[in-house]
Design a protein around this nucleic acid. Sequence first.
DNA 1: TGTCCAGATGAAAGCGCTGTCAATCGTGTA
DNA 2: TACACGATTGACAGCGCTTTCATCTGGACA
Lengths: 346, 346
Amino acid sequence: MATPRKTKSSRVTLNDVATRAKVSTVTASRVLRKPEMVSADLRARVTAAVRELAYIPNQLASALASSRTGRIGVIVPSLTNGVFNDYLRALHDVFVPAGFQVLVLNSHYMPGREEKAIATMLGQFPEAIILAGVSQTPQARKSLKQAGIPVVQTMEIASKPIDINIGMSQYDAGYAAARHLFELGHRQVGQISAPLDRRARTRIKGYLQAAREFEAEPMVVSVDQPSSVPLGGQLLIELLERWPPVTAVFCGNDNLALGALFECQRRGIAVPDDLSIIGFNDLEVSACAFPSLSSIATPRREMARRAAEIILEIIRGSGQRPKQRQIDLGFRLIARQSTAKPLQVD
Amino acid sequence: MATPRKTKSSRVTLNDVATRAKVSTVTASRVLRKPEMVSADLRARVTAAVRELAYIPNQLASALASSRTGRIGVIVPSLTNGVFNDYLRALHDVFVPAGFQVLVLNSHYMPGREEKAIATMLGQFPEAIILAGVSQTPQARKSLKQAGIPVVQTMEIASKPIDINIGMSQYDAGYAAARHLFELGHRQVGQISAPLDRRARTRIKGYLQAAREFEAEPMVVSVDQPSSVPLGGQLLIELLERWPPVTAVFCGNDNLALGALFECQRRGIAVPDDLSIIGFNDLEVSACAFPSLSSIATPRREMARRAAEIILEIIRGSGQRPKQRQIDLGFRLIARQSTAKPLQVD
DNA sequence: TGTCCAGATGAAAGCGCTGTCAATCGTGTA
DNA sequence: TACACGATTGACAGCGCTTTCATCTGGACA
């Protein structure tokens, strides 16, 4: 045959191990999963055979037979955004020691792709799914419910959680960032963001509310592109062109804030004297920039950790959901050097 | 039974679809995989049944039966480093459209964890493995060879490739970065890096060679910590304390360079007038920093893309390896504002 | 009109593992 | 000495899918 199939013999199976150890397949299987059920004698023989044959268990077969895949599905909207690095790391830190594997899919901030990612994920039969965000398509919500596994929505508070929800109010956080600038005395406060991210849009609403309260003109500049450091510079330029008197800017996230800061340096705009800048998320770089960037610290690691812990509890506790199915973890305003009172309060 | 097993009925199987469409399981299977083999009539019936039942194929069973998992295993040493974002994205861009799934594991720059990651990966039976780096443990090399799947080592040139190798010379690149500074006239050239990364260590060797050629004193400061922006600042402080006359610094990567830049701004050290800075990797942020950061542009996207393409060729071409099993993709020196001639050539 | 063949369909046999339950063994008890 | 019991061990039947190969069509062709 020209068919390039793997030769059977190349793969060492549990059966090969069993044969070599002169035990049944079941016993060999048990040595690997529940060694205490097997006598020391046989256990030693099997262990030796495993080593000698360099046996690697076929997780596919194992998962199929036991209907336990040991997988947790995670869907995030971006991998470049530092936020999700922290988030994913926190998930790994809980799941990996617990013997689970974390499968990550990227939705690129597009609801359509998220729906597809959820379908793909479900085809892998994960034992639980964690979503960054709460705005799934109706179709996706339906599939998720139908899957009958724990589903945790994170990063925001959902009005109608699918199952479990651990988040924070993006609206309140956006409001808090804007309010910080208004309270310092700024009245010409701009907002720049990359609103592909729905959460960034929610934060803008918080900003708009603050502007309303302080009777300030809303000045929003945004462009439907993935957020990045250079983009922050571009958006700042546009903001300054459209509203030259602006004295403060709330950036949709810290990358944009960093780009805006660099652009200020390039143009000789003093931060915070000529322009106050506040970002969002409090990435590691924000604290060490010069001037250090004010930001809103989001509990992304805590959200991930809590989500993971709750899932483990549910899986181990035969599907029982915790009493509290929705948790708000809040946020913190971190005021640093990049925000200050405006020089002249005109 | 108290056993919390999934109820059989909850999962829709291919069999259910077939029954509903009044065809055999095989036909249903074919409609999903090779629709052109099935008549339009039956195809329509099966498609309808799939939709009505919201059938999700069980990839586990599929993979087990066909011994084609549709998975590509990738092991990278870090996810926080922007380099690997670009790298992974490039891999996705080739593999996902080709119908493959990319599984990523993180070795955290530790050979031991890489070995473990490779074992874990092999248990998933990927159809190929891509490694970022060439320094696998002997045990890992053995398992990889034994797996009988395409293995591509990337990011560096290997002296003894396991299978395929697509890389660049980290030594030459380090040398080029250092030489750039020496050629500008600097003689007090420092080097800072986080040498958990073996490649960073290789670059240091390139730097040392350049220092030797220009008869300059080597000034290396490093600390075994994961690289980060803040760390760049700390290392710069240490460098300046140990060698105050330093007029230029080669940073092990762009994050360190950025941290060093911020630290200079904080201390009123003018870049490049008082201190020239060159980074490594040419991350997106480097071009838009102020002053913009000189760097070495590494072909990480190209390495990933080539690796992916070669793998697809091998898989589709019944395992035939290409003629050229080792490719050097080179690098480029990008001189920007952060490097210039020293003010006084003492 | 009969033969042959390509195309379409289905039956059966696993892929490598685990869950279930029956069989076996040695030991303590009556 | 007979019997029960817990601890080990193994035989068997799938998990849900694909592969292989046999079967069955309906023309094309002689």
